[in-house]
Amino acid sequence: MARRGIPSSAINANMTPMIDVTFLLIVFFVVVSQIVDRDAVPLDLPAPTQAASGIPDSAEHVTVNLVPIAGGEISGIVVGGHTVAVDAMDELTSIVNTRLQGGATDVHLRADRATKYLYIHQAIEAIRAVGTSPRMQLVVDGEYR
């Protein structure tokens, strides 16, 4: 019986399944990273028990974030990449107005659970001053339902 000689090539790992999985992971992260709402500032949102809230539809919106500091105060309002000072609500009105004219229909209001209502009301009044009565969405945490 003739014995065949073992070829003298180097031993190689089979790369194909690893590349398959790696490409799948890349495609996953590329797709997921596009749906992140970059306008949203990380906040400890209120999470009411037995929430009757709903998932907001995917209408084009402008997000108004009230950035908290200690004691229920706020350091400013972040909207569309701009930071508005607490005492410059006219600026908030004009930014929201610009975004609404650009096609947005909803205004998402995000505030920390400890924020004083005084600042929430100031923000709501500034949005009301736009004059076109947009639909407002009061954003809450829906993770613990």
Partner: peptide, 28 residues
């Protein structure tokens, strides 16, 4: 490919599950 993978893994922020209450703000 691994560089791309690491980049996207580091750069990705997952959106938290948020819900909302709709409220009308009529003009005064």
């Amino acid at each position: 490919v691994f560089l791309l993978l690491v980049y996207f893994m580091v750069a990705t922020e997952f959106k938290t599950a948020e819900e909302s209450f709709p409220m009308d703000v009529p003009i005064r």
